[in-house]
């Protein structure tokens, strides 16, 4: 199967989206902005394509897999999700200096491909439709107690433990990054960090 990359989401486009969002958000109410954003980007997200950006560690295929998986962890609906927050770039930054994590991600992606073949006969994870992708992530997510810190990464990349270690770590990292970003905060309506502004309106309530 071929992947079209002519319309891929490049770093420049990504930064452009985020910048536009930030500037516009200062002018318009957030709900309105999020609706406009969703409408404008519907087509961009519709087709499967490989990321073209230069990564220090990830190959275009690996980067695209990570972005696709994170976009299922925090999906884009009527508001931005992991894809728009550029989680894949942040993850690449975080693992580039950590050999153990790099290995985990590499093995984890191999496991996704292996599982795709095993369950559907298709060659690679990106060949799957969304339901099939989620089915594999559910398998990986069943063992929630796994943490890459607590267990050695097995050599055999077909073991579900690899998938669990990888996916649970990816969920944790995705949440960590998304909910400490301006975009994530805007999505949930949070105006942080706690200091130095504080919450002087803490006692002004919207209920009777």
């Amino acid at each position: 199967m071929e992947y079209r990359d002519s319309d891929s989401l490049t770093r420049r486009k990504f930064i452009g989206i985020i910048t536009s969002f930030s500037v516009l958000s200062s002018l318009f109410p957030s709900n309105y902005l999020l609706s406009v954003w969703a409408l404008e980007n519907k087509n961009l997200l519709k087709s499967q394509k490989l990321l073209k950006d230069k990564f220090r560690f990830f190959s275009p295929y690996q980067a695209t897999v990570i972005e696709e998986v994170t976009s299922l962890i925090i999906p884009s609906d009527n508001s931005p999700g992991a894809r728009e927050a550029g989680i894949v770039f942040a993850i690449e930054n975080s693992i580039s200096e950590n050999e153990r994590l790099r290995t985990l991600y590499q093995k984890g992606i191999e496991w996704l491909d292996f599982k795709a073949k095993e369950l559907t006969g298709k060659d690679r994870y990106l060949d799957l439709n969304q339901d099939e992708r989620i089915e594999i992530l559910n398998i990986a997510g069943q063992n929630k107690s796994s943490s890459y810190k607590e267990a050695n990464i097995p050599r055999v990349d077909r073991n579900t433990t690899v998938g669990s270690l990888f996916f649970n770590n990816l969920v944790r990292q995705t949440l960590d990054i998304f909910y400490t970003s301006d975009l994530g905060w805007k999505v949930v309506g949070y105006h942080g960090p706690p200091q130095w502004a504080g919450n002087l309106n803490y006692n002004k309530c919207n209920f009777k």
Binding site: I74, D77, L137, G141, T174, L175, T180, G189, Y190, P194
Partner: peptide
Amino acid sequence: LLGPLSYAQRIAPGWGPEHKEFMTKYFG
């Protein structure tokens, strides 16, 4: 439960649409 990440890690469903819906509906 002090900020969005605490909600996401401690009381929201793990991931996916349910997670996002919880976070947008129940933060705070």
